[in-house]
Design a protein around this nucleic acid. Structure first.
Lengths: 251, 251
DNA sequence: GAGTGGTCTAGACCACGAC
DNA sequence: TCGTGGTCTAGACCACTCT
């Protein structure tokens, strides 16, 4: 089972797949298998090197790959830890709402407006990798800062995975969904991809956000992925375009 | 064997400043000094290691830092090269204009609408690190795809550096400014920082873009930096908000 | 074949964190 | 004091690129 082959004389050194690359894949598998839970330490580098029969530097390169991927985190003097996942407040990085005291980023409050089951669209089934016609859970959610509504969200979750949420009382839900996904469903959000574009609010959406119909808004279409790289959440977020503020660097 | 004992005696091993960190700073200086021009190779890793009297792995770590910074690029089997700078078309990554054949990203055309000298504002002087009241060159520029105007830009450049541009005929300018900065003024754009927000076009701006006044637009406020990390360009770009399309990933 | 960057080894010591 | 990750060494061989 162990990949500890004999010596460098026999390695094919396949182009595109070095030894540390294979080690990274092997370790990633063990993490996904749940051998070490999110937040836990993995064995020391020296121990891993010995158990795989490779040099320390080789195992360090493997770990570096997983650190780059965001699967692992190193802490000098303490150990190497499995990542806990992204923080749920990350949607706020696209906006800077006024009226709220700037400088202090208070955690936004969350209210679930509706929760219902329906069959997945073809697009959703494809994204989630589930069969056409499977069930999904659709949520409408309003996020507020200092009692001021600021973001309106539509969230779609594949049912086999998030069944426990469908049965529970939405009033008892946490303000942050991603940590809750992990606690209640064992789903760790590891990566997100956001598509930003510009749109206008319809009447119903505007009412929720205390704006007028056709008010300009930013549309954020998010796909969230678990540690295995599977898409496990589709989210559409709308917020006042004039509160949009985003910074990006190139090189 | 005994080398480890020797070398450690001379290095203070200052916390927060490793040997490869110092090497990276030293090499960066030599690049900024112009010892190797953008696009040129630097000496081989083995040669650098020998000339600095360090192990190969140490010089490789130093080079890795500069590669991360975008100052250097490695090419297996060929050598390590000084980066040529960012491509000028990078503003297009925020938009997806329709009517133009999608899939093919044609290079947008450029027309300089105006060019004039004026004294820098306090904010500009601060950003550029020049004295208050110094001269700057301000350009208005329209970018078009397939003869359709799509982006309106205001560009401010500090004068001591870009003096040659002020004297030249704007009709003979290139479509891409950054390569031209390098050719004519020896300025290599190495990094950019873009602040995105939403706004509305005034009457004059709208006319240039063939839209109506108060039409929603995306506002991109860019700072561009040279290899030494100095801000050498301030740019404000406006484009139709409905053509805005941007994708970003988290972790 | 010669030269480059990329991988790997085996071992030493340093800096950090907890006990 | 001990265990952890971080730095550094000296030397070997592999894979890519050009001539």
């Amino acid at each position: 089972m162990s990949t500890a082959n004999m010596s460098t004389m026999f390695t094919t050194h396949t182009p595109g797949q070095s030894r540390y690359g294979k080690l990274a894949l092997a370790l990633r598998d063990r993490i996904l298998q749940g051998e070490w839970a999110p937040g836990e330490v993995i064995p020391a580098e020296s121990a891993l090197a010995q158990s795989y029969g490779v040099a320390l530097g080789t195992i360090r390169q493997a770990l570096s790959l997983l650190v780059e991927d965001g699967v692992l985190q190193r802490r000098h003097g303490k150990g190497t830890f499995v990542t806990k996942g992204v923080d749920g407040a990350s949607m706020m990085r696209f906006f800077r709402f006024r009226g709220v005291d700037d400088g202090q980023s208070e955690a936004p409050q969350s209210r679930i407006l509706s929760s219902r089951l329906r069959t997945a669209t073809a697009q959703e089934a494809n994204a989630f990798g589930i069969t056409n016609g499977a069930q999904v859970l659709q949520l409408e959610r309003l996020r507020s800062l200092a009692s001021e509504p600021c973001l309106l969200e539509t969230i779609v979750l594949p049912l086999p995975l998030f069944g426990k949420l469908a049965d529970s009382d939405t009033d008892a839900w946490d303000d942050l969904l991603y940590p809750m996904y992990q606690e209640r469903c064992g789903v760790v959000i590891q990566k997100t991809q956001d598509h930003l574009s510009f749109s206008q609010l319809n009447a119903a959406q505007a009412k929720r956000l205390r704006l007028v119909a056709a008010h300009p808004c930013v549309l954020v279409e998010r796909q969230a992925f678990d540690m295995a790289g599977r898409c496990v959440e589709l989210r559409t977020t709308r917020g006042d375009a004039f509160s949009f503020k985003y910074t990006t660097q190139l090189q």
